[in-house]
Design a protein around this nucleic acid. Structure first.
Lengths: 195, 195
DNA sequence: GATATCGCTTAACCTAGGTTAATTCCTTTC
DNA sequence: GAAAGGAATTAACCTAGGTTAAGCGATATC
């Protein structure tokens, strides 16, 4: 542990998931990354086989279509575990990148080593299960929103889900999150103002 | 184990995920359900706190919007673990129902008991991790398809992903899977025929 | 302090997909 | 074998959202 004060937030986060995990087991050094606003932790297409923990800051998961259009898959505020489960587990290319929307502090640890650690410590494994379940459930919620709701409804849902982001991030990023163009979002906001 | 011959497929499935799990640990009886075409294993809104295993058959996950429109979230062919992770883990109401599209055989086991079993057996826990990762990854793939692709593209992707379903299930169900009306799907198929 | 540059708005026009409804073609069912 | 319901097609019309482009503040940059 090179920077014990930084890993405190990680320890706290782990403890909050209800397990008795002692991070001092980790033998490799935890790396600390400082990611500036606008910069990427990793890009779409990279193999991101690290376990990442966003200690403080705000990021978005962003993927670009073949036609070059940007889509924001989600916003995540620290403290939280972040990263591409798929890329991590299967060592494949990530289908999205992670971009900081604010100055952010990210800790990382090699996934393979982390996984080995887990296999020898049931508490770790249980922690990982809780983590997967947690992310999984939040995904299950969002999944159907696209099919079921109009863009206007999705915008209103966004405002409820991320009240603190509504006025701090760019509208084009909100638009890319709800899956429409900035022009269309502007129209929707205009219409809502009139009501 | 009341019907050992049926649990063989479950044992095989478990083994294929690479772990040495002995199902005979399970103390409660595994229930066997025979679900007729069109019938529901459970409905949207039910608390489905069982671990379900689709031994043979074909099901779809279907959810209904407030306005009464049906959406197919996915098709699953046996043998496969099925169910609502969210409902199972949090004992909340499922946001979708599971409907058989063919005569299906489903095994079930109370989740709470299954989970307890896992906590005492690291192999079980690792199995569950593999399982979560597996479903998770397939979700990560589908998630962005809606934002990124047109309905036509989504239909073509469907045909590649489920070649055997393309001609065996109803078009309205394909339509509800790709998020359009049967009328729109018919138009798209018409257009593709001309090419 | 002038001038790019970037984010947002507004307007005009276009297109994919929704809605309704009529028609045909299958299956069931009696 | 007639009748009835369900599944798919086709056409006419409508609407949400995309596209392009012009204008308007802001905030950088020189």
């Amino acid at each position: 542990m090179e920077q014990p004060q930084l890993t405190n937030s990680l320890q706290t986060y782990f403890n909050r998931l209800g397990h008795d995990i002692d991070l001092s087991i980790l033998t490799l050094p935890v790396e600390v990354h400082s990611v500036s606003k606008g910069d990427f932790l990793f890009q779409q297409g990279d193999v991101a086989s690290n376990f990442y923990f966003l200690s403080t800051g705000l990021v978005r998961y962003v993927s670009v279509s073949d036609e070059g259009k940007e889509f924001t898959q989600s916003f995540v505020k620290g403290p939280s575990v972040i990263g591409s489960t798929k890329s991590m587990v299967t060592k494949s290319k990530a289908s999205f990148g992670i971009q900081a929307l604010e100055e952010s502090i990210v800790l990382s640890y090699p996934w393979a080593a982390f996984y080995e650690q887990m296999r020898h410590d049931k508490n770790f494994l249980e922690f990982y299960v809780k983590l997967l379940e947690k992310i999984f459930i939040s995904k299950e919620e969002r999944e159907s929103a696209f099919m079921k709701h109009s863009a206007e409804r999705r915008y209103l849902d966004f405002c409820v889900a991320y009240p603190e982001l509504k006025d701090t991030i760019q509208q084009q990023q909100i638009a890319s999150y709800i899956g429409i163009t900035p022009v269309a979002l502007s129209r929707i906001r205009q219409k809502l103002k009139l009501c």
